[in-house]
């Protein structure tokens, strides 16, 4: 049954997923071409210094990409469910309702993870072909807040779209904006190193908020 649910979710979001993939690859290609130009016209040592001491991020263009992708997937996956109250069909399937809702979010989370991991590995391979391991090693921790923002916007989009009570929709959206903006406060390498893992785990907890919105949808609360 869960395989069947996954099938439905995939049909719903496959184009949005491919668009997200194209956006990410397009930006990474642009990052790669810019870097090649930089390498071509600057001594590599100078460039390294610039990266290490001036906190230059050669991949800063990628900053908002996970956020945009999280939003695209959230909208593509949950707006069709709420149009004509189609979610009723999903909640009437012979599965526990909580399981259905959590699976939908888990499925989106898994696809986001696959995409983010793919982008991360490409950026790692670009970085490692020009820079020493010390620079490449900072990539994960520097990218993680942006990826976390992508997950957060996805989770909040699912909740806000399913939610039927406007006051809650607005409050959750405001909270989401406030929380997500925190991930873009610093552009330094490893800026969030001390807090990002617990914050990431905290954001993952927001995946369960859909249960509350789904419950209110189910009970017809408006």
């Amino acid at each position: 049954m869960l395989l069947s649910l996954a099938y439905k979710e995939w049909i719903k979001i496959r184009w949005a997923y491919l668009v997200s993939l194209a956006i990410g690859l397009g930006i990474i290609l642009s990052i790669f071409l810019n870097l090649r130009l930089l390498v071509e016209f600057n001594p590599l040592k100078e460039l390294w210094n610039y990266i290490i001491f001036k906190n230059y991020l050669f991949y800063s263009q990628f900053r908002y990409i996970p956020l945009v992708i999280g939003l695209i997937l959230g909208i593509a996956q949950f707006v069709p469910e709420i149009q004509n109250l189609r979610l009723k069909l999903s909640l009437h399937l012979p599965i526990e309702e909580t399981k259905t809702l959590l699976f939908m979010v888990f499925y989106g989370f898994s696809l986001l993870t696959a995409l983010f991991l793919f982008f991360y590995l490409i950026l790692v391979s670009i970085s490692s072909s020009y820079f020493p391991p010390d620079i490449t090693n900072t990539l994960f921790i520097t990218l993680l807040p942006w990826f976390t923002a992508g997950y957060a916007v996805y989770f909040f989009a699912s909740v806000v779209i399913i939610e039927q009570i406007w006051v809650r929709r607005i409050s959750i959206s405001l909270f989401a904006v406030l929380l997500i903006s925190q991930f873009f406060l610093s552009m330094n390498h490893n800026a969030y190193i001390k807090i990002i893992i617990p914050v990431f785990l905290f954001v993952i907890l927001f995946s369960t908020l859909i249960i509350n919105s789904g419950y209110r949808f189910k009970r017809g609360l408006k």
């Binding site: 049954m1 395989l3 069947s4 099938y7 439905k8 049909i11 719903k12 069709p80 004509n84 109250l85 189609r86 009723k88 069909l89 399937l93 012979p94 599965i95």
Partner: peptide, 22 residues
């Protein structure tokens, strides 16, 4: 559901395949 609401993003083969497993 009123208005014959279904998963309109699927075609008739996909939707049968989806429901049949439930």
């Amino acid at each position: 559901i009123e208005g014959h609401v279904q998963y309109s993003f699927m075609n008739i083969i996909q939707i049968e395949k989806f429901y049949s497993r439930f």
